[in-house]
Amino acid sequence: MADHPVSPSSSKTEALAALVSEFGAEHLPDAADGIAGILVDRDSWLELARQLRDQEDLRFDLLVDVTAVDWPDRQPRFEVVYHLWSLTHNRLLRVKVGVPEEQAECPSVVLVWGTANWHEREVFDMYGVRFAGHPDLRRILMPDDYPYHPLRKDFPLEGVDNSVSYRNEGGVLMTQELFVDRPAGQDPTPVDRSKGDPQGYSDGAAPADES
């Protein structure tokens, strides 16, 4: 990655700089991996994405990845991160879009890069960021009725026990009951393993400093 041709020079860098100033975006400081990055306002992101794909000197025609970062102490809390690759010019670009917690929504770029479809569903599933204009914004990895967004930093690392209390009773458990033991609006309850497992496992005293 280090010798990736991201070196400044030429019309390509100028085209990017022109676009950045036109849309009020910012250049990000140099990253350790040497990939150029820009920080974009979410209102202008969709139009900027089109330009990045279509301008002759840029031609970022491949969307490599969409992910997000949760910064609990920052404003805005979420950063949606896109990695773009121009196959024509062999250049990489990182785009970050800030998304506040109160209105966790970001324009969908599915119409620009079709491959964004499942990536954006994953970001929605894991971080709860909604993508406006997405044709089919459903969870992709977790069950449809799963109540949390587990890669948010306030979600407990060891997970939440969603099952109803059920252990060798010979009773019948309906599948829909798997996720309804939590009243709506209540905060997720972390599994308290300090007194052994709540369902009766005992794998010894859990170390106190685990969390």
Partner: peptide, 15 residues
């Protein structure tokens, strides 16, 4: 021990 894995199948069926 994380968000995606059921901590033991006896959560959903008798073993």
């Amino acid at each position: 021990r994380n968000y995606s894995v059921v901590p033991g199948v006896d959560r959903i069926m008798p073993v």
